[in-house]
Design a protein around this nucleic acid. Structure first.
Lengths: 195, 195
DNA sequence: TAATTAGGACTGGGCGGTCAGTACTACTAT
DNA sequence: ATAGTAGTACTGACCGCCCAGTCCTAATTA
């Protein structure tokens, strides 16, 4: 059984609006307006705004794994350094396409929801863990292959890279320039290189 | 003439509520409830919720410079590495005191407001610049004294440290554990050390 | 014929913001 | 001395709007 057309439209519109305006700041009327789907149909597919929010997040995570992590960090047909570099390149391309910069969809949601809603928090927490795992594997393989320095544990480096990335994207959104992301990624790639 | 008692109460309560629940998600009634000041009195002191928000932010920035940056990063009576270390220590102490972790007051606000309100965005943008300046000076002096490695420009390192810090604090909020901040600061201190 | 979509009216509550008026103090003109 | 004036601090009642969610009917589609 496949997802009906309306349901997909709702989720797509909700994702875009939640990303740009936040979950709480997006009204169901906003979503019906953008998706062209009626309010009653929305409540036919979802029992509450929270349920829609969680499903939109789940779908975004699924999409991110398939379209970003899979082809880059986890793509073992390329050497680790190239994978990481390609990952950064895709991140930059994505954020360059958002004008004005809207920040990381996951980071934004984490800031907004983690203090008040445990369902969102837990989903985001395990997503960040999974993201970190992908980075860690890539780095570990890079150390083994001699491309990356081996004096820090892959886990610690992965943690650092993920936090740093989230922070850079926040700076891009705040300063409205890609510069922090561009120079930051160059620095990390250089720092990771084996001496 | 000093600020009236009520105005201070309003700003203090607003700061705490904005930090924990966000600007938009905090109602003026919430603020009157916590501060014990009436709604009409609030509108006597501030022309709008936005004006209150901006003043609360301005005050927080002032406080942060005086109570955090001044005694640590800018405190030239200590050597740079010790200053940075003390800075990290204070950040950790602050976030350890918030249960559950509420994230960075500035980072949270940036995520929430930078897409929709240029007054907030500009104030936060120049605040982050100023923060980066404080880090840069400290690092530059550390390089000159030979404590820190000199193969990256102080500006780039400062940028990296600030982004990384904001990201770590986001992780602390999401995962509800101080571990990312604790191990992340250790790693940065070690990375900066001159070889 | 069962799932899906459309349409619209409605509820109860929360929201930011407005307003006319009170109380108090201090300065000033007579 | 007194009456008037002005500025500050504060109050409670109120307004119109928007929100998530409900309810019901009816058409359409697979």
């Amino acid at each position: 059984m496949s997802i009906s057309g309306s349901k997909k439209k709702i989720i797509d519109s909700a994702q875009a609006l939640f990303h740009r305006h936040g979950f709480q700041q997006t009204s169901l009327d906003d979503i019906t307006r953008v998706s062209g789907v009626t309010r009653s149909n929305l409540y036919y597919h979802f029992n509450s705004k929270e349920e829609l929010g969680l499903e939109a997040l789940r779908e975004r995570i699924r999409h991110y794994e398939a379209e970003v992590l899979g082809p880059t960090l986890r793509n073992t047909s390329f050497p680790p350094a190239e994978r990481l570099s390609e990952f950064y390149r895709r991140v930059a391309t994505y954020h360059r396409s958002q004008v004005p910069p809207a920040g990381c969809p996951f980071g934004n949601l984490a800031v907004e929801m983690c203090g008040t809603n445990d369902n969102f928090r837990e989903m985001l927490s395990s997503f960040f863990d999974m993201w970190e795992d992908a980075l860690e594997s890539c780095i570990r393989q890079g150390i083994e292959s001699g491309e990356f320095r081996g004096d820090y544990s892959p886990r610690i480096m992965a943690q650092m890279i993920l936090s740093h990335l989230e922070g850079m994207v926040l700076m891009v959104k705040t300063h409205r320039t890609m510069e922090p992301l561009d120079s930051g990624t160059v620095m990390i790639m250089s720092l990771l290189k084996a001496t």
